[in-house]
Design a binder for these strands. Structure first.
Length: 581
RNA sequence: GGUCCCGUAGCUCAGCUGGAUAGAGCAGCAGCCUUCUAAGCUGUUGGUCGCAGGUUCAAGUCCUGCCGGGAUCGCCA
């Protein structure tokens, strides 16, 4: 039940009846939304203005014809033309009240839609290098990607959560060598970790595991022989580490895709490059030296290039390094072709701020490998600055390790971590204040929203205590006399509830989960406000022993608020406690 | 130098992918606790939407050029 979608359909139908020749594409161009100024009415549409010009008519004439279609309609109490051609509707209370019943009937599914039409969408996120535990910088992208995935699933997309394991580069060799040092250390050698190696303690268990499995035998092998063995072991261990970190945040990927599987003879990279060559998209050539800071070891040479600039990138991009191995980008082209061949025409990549320069070539790659059939949206998560009591926080600890994702979650909890990271647009840098998210005051939005949910339960507990004879079962709530819900403060709440499905679809389409966080904060605020009204005016209290009928109607409203708060928080991966201790 | 992101109230930020008189929270000021958990609420002060042009019925929103802040810049991943 989406009131806005309901009116949108009705208006489109009316327009099609009035103007049979009207271009149907226009019928999806107008919007139905709550006007900024509530004085203008409950719903407003710009339909007349959108349609007027192509029809060669004045907006107000179109509006007048449209208004005539709604005269005497049961759903509306008034329809007015305003300003340059807006149409403002006042919706009958009965329709608003039916929203409460709809929330009750649909329960956890309230807000669900099928705008995705079951289309497969691949969301690649996190993809942190498998060289150690996740550090705090990865957290934002992890939470964002996960929330976006849940959101789009709820809107009817067939979502695959995917993690790309960068296990093919030189840093993995360094990782394996670092683990090998720990192995030798376990065997009794005194080891100094040289610069450029991974010094973290987290490799000690890997060394131990190698010692358990191979005793001392690896030590006497040449590196070429032990390296692949150690690499296999250490990669599995690191991935387990990362999965454990992610599960701390309640995040689980459907697919872990290894970059290594793309390499080698007959692998996807070779196939993809051969295919690109057939298309004439690969050539030998030179690039201009980059402006700005030029590396000392820059060497102008002829190289193998992909025609990225044919697809909107600024320059063509190198595919092969000077040592003959493939560039990261070459593997990434193959990887995205692989996604396309797996049936994904919609891809979303969640990347950190340092990858913003990568967007154009990625889009170029997707366009090229799909023949323009697939699209990719790259969502950049900007930096998070850690603060404590308003002061910048050291990102590295004494041991030299970075602050890890686990540190943050252990410090402030999953709910606070997730909500705070989602309570901001992804493309703006943000501050994360450790002290604030642990506060139990209204300044802390996580707490504020969870408190609203706990309050809905508290009201039911009170009702049970003070009116033991009252039947507050789901069936009784469903049968409540909703026509009693009429005061402005109540209608404000109901209107917000009615806007939930619309908020979900809009956030899905825009790939912006933060809108749900703001929505739920708004709903919590409206609920707290209504709750407080009962203090000044006892007739506005939810539970009133003198008025069982009214109490039941109000409880039905509270239950709807409870359900939507729960739905929205669940979507964000934040728990909704029934009681705050 | 190129590219991308940001610039909205003293501070932190929304602004529903072009709509009507630009909104919240914090801070400030003035109020509300023998409570349906005050862990909350009400009222109020505060704006040249960085600047200048352009597009149109309509621009914080789209385009161009500047200014300021951040990120990034052939073979790292």
């Amino acid at each position: 039940m989406d009131v806005f979608a309901h009116f949108s359909t009705r208006i489109a139908t009316a327009l099609a009846e009035i103007y049979p020749d009207l271009d149907r594409a226009l019928l999806s161009r107008f919007v139905v939304e709550p006007p900024r100024d509530p004085g203008h009415g409950d719903l407003s549409t710009n339909a007349a203005m959108v349609v007027a010009k192509p029809l060669g008519k004045s907006p107000r004439d179109v509006a007048a014809a449209l208004v005539a279609k709604f005269e005497g309609d049961a759903d509306v109490t008034s329809v007015e033309i305003a300003g340059p051609g807006f149409i403002n509707f006042r919706v009958a209370n009965g329709l608003w009240q039916s929203v409460i019943a709809a929330v009750h009937a649909e329960g956890a599914d309230f807000g669900r839609s099928d705008i995705g039409c079951g289309e497969p969408v691949n969301i690649e996120f996190v993809s942190a290098n498998p060289t150690g535990p996740m550090h705090v910088g990865h957290t934002r992208g992890a939470v964002f990607g996960d929330a976006l995935a849940t959101l789009m699933q709820f809107s009817g997309y067939a979502v695959t959560r995917e993690y790309y394991i960068n296990d093919a580069g030189g840093q993995v060799d360094v990782l394996a060598r670092s683990a090998f040092l720990r192995y030798r250390e376990i065997l009794g050698e005194v080891i100094e970790i040289p610069r450029g190696f991974y010094p973290g303690d987290y490799l000690v268990p890997v060394g131990q595991q190698l010692a358990n499995e191979f005793a001392g035998t690896l030590r006497w092998l040449p590196e070429a022989e032990w390296l692949p063995i150690v690499k296999d072991r250490v990669l599995v261990a690191m991935l387990d580490l990362i999965k454990a970190d992610l599960s701390k945040l309640g995040i689980r990927h459907d697919v872990f895709f290894s970059e290594r599987t793309l390499h080698g003879p007959g692998g996807d990279i070779e196939k993809t490059l051969a295919w690109l060559r057939e298309q004439g998209l690969v050539y030998q050539g030179r690039l201009e030296a980059p402006k700005g800071q030029v590396d000392d070891d820059y060497e102008d040479r002829e190289q193998t290039l992909f025609r990225a600039s044919d697809y909107g990138d600024d320059v063509d991009r190198a595919l092969v390094k000077s040592d003959g191995s493939y560039t990261y980008f070459a593997a990434d082209i193959a990887y995205h072709r692989n996604k396309y061949l797996r049936g994904f025409k919609h891809m979303i990549n969640v990347l950190g701020a340092d990858h913003s320069g990568y967007i154009k070539r990625l889009k170029a790659a997707v366009k090229a490998v799909s023949g323009g059939e697939a699209d990719i949206d790259v969502r950049i998560c900007q930096l998070v600055r850690l603060l404590k009591d308003g002061e910048p926080f050291k990102m590295s600890k004494r041991s030299g390790d970075l602050v890890t994702l686990a540190d943050v979650v252990d410090e402030v909890g999953v709910d606070a971590t997730r909500f705070m990271l989602l309570f901001r647009r992804n493309d703006a840098a943000m501050d994360f204040d450790f002290a604030l998210v642990k506060e139990q005051t209204r300044d802390n939005p996580v707490f504020y929203v969870q408190y609203a949910h706990a309050r809905t339960h508290s009201i039911f507990r009170t009702a049970q205590r003070d009116m033991p004879g009252l039947d507050i079962s789901p069936a009784a709530l469903a049968a409540a006399g909703l026509s009693l819900i009429v005061t402005p403060a109540e209608m404000e709440l109901v209107r917000l509830l009615a806007g939930y499905p619309r908020a979900i679809t809009a956030a899905s389409i825009a790939h912006e989960p933060h809108r749900i966080a703001f929505y739920v904060h708004d709903l919590a605020a409206a609920f707290h406000a209504f709750w407080a009204k009962g203090k000044e005016d006892p007739t506005l209290r939810f539970v009133n022993a003198e008025e069982p009928t009214m109490t039941l109607a109000r409880l039905a409203l509270v239950d709807a608020v409870r359900q939507v708060l729960l739905n929205a928080l669940t979507l964000l991966g934040v728990t909704a406690p029934e009681e705050l201790s």
